[in-house]
């Protein structure tokens, strides 16, 4: 099964909508709640990052009996130093966004922790692609 989502960067209100839909579908498919939790956390963090940093983007989700594979593509500013961005507590989020409880520098670490495989490719000025795999 393949699902596609467009994430609107201006609609902060809708951030998390794609993750919520994926969660509902996985529940209908009978995937265990622990696996759903991991996918929901990793995907939500990635989706929020798209809205906060990259003015939205596109998400593709592939669900097979063995795994859930999520690709999040944006055309935002890119990540200059991925190793640095992966460090807990490191954040480039604005003060405004931090006041809302985001930008704690836990987004990428959470994606890493809750996925089985995480791949980030990024080019400054061009955008970022995040690939999340969770085995069912």
């Amino acid at each position: 099964m393949k699902l596609n989502f467009e994430v609107d960067g201006d609609e902060f209100i809708l951030a998390g909508e794609a993750s919520s839909q994926v969660k509902k579908i996985l529940k209908q498919l009978g995937v265990s709640s622990e696996i759903i939790r991991r996918i929901a956390i990793a995907m939500y963090e990635a989706e929020i990052n798209m809205v906060i940093h990259a003015n939205g983007g596109k998400i593709e989700v592939e669900i097979t009996p063995k795994k859930v594979y999520i690709v999040l593509k944006d055309t935002g500013p890119g990540i200059p130093d991925i190793d640095l961005a992966m460090q807990e507590g490191y954040s480039t989020a604005s003060e405004e966004v931090r006041e809302l409880g985001f930008g704690a520098g836990m987004g990428l670490p959470n994606m890493k922790k809750y996925s089985d495989d995480l791949k980030i490719t990024s080019e400054v000025g061009k955008g970022t692609t995040v690939e999340i795999t969770v085995y069912i």
Partner: peptide, 10 residues
């Protein structure tokens, strides 16, 4: 509004 997404997802 994002607190509802968080609560619902987990």
């Amino acid at each position: 509004v994002n607190i509802i997404a968080v609560a619902s997802l987990i």
